[in-house]
Amino acid sequence: MAQEEGQPIFSEVTCQEIAQWASAYLDEHVEDERKRHIALHLAICAGCETYVKQIATVRDVVGILPKAIEQPSDSQRLRQAFVARARRLPASR
């Protein structure tokens, strides 16, 4: 896997750095130069490709986990307060 000089082929950026930058990369919050390095690395590194995909999966699944729809324990009191406030302050804007 090493190049002629015996240097690793991923000389621009390490896998550890890719792992650190995975979330910022997925959300497009890395500067162009870094983004280019990461994209090049991902194209040739199966370990990093897997890792970034897993973080993307986590991000996506967390966003669609079933949510319990909760209401305030005293929602009636809140609604009454809302109505009372609206009566005191007729919409002026």
């Binding site: 590194c45 199966a46 370990g47 990093c48 897997t50």
Partner: peptide, 10 residues
């Protein structure tokens, strides 16, 4: 800095 124990694909 490179993977010694890469994640196993899902």
């Amino acid at each position: 800095g490179h993977w010694a124990f890469p994640p196993q694909p899902w």
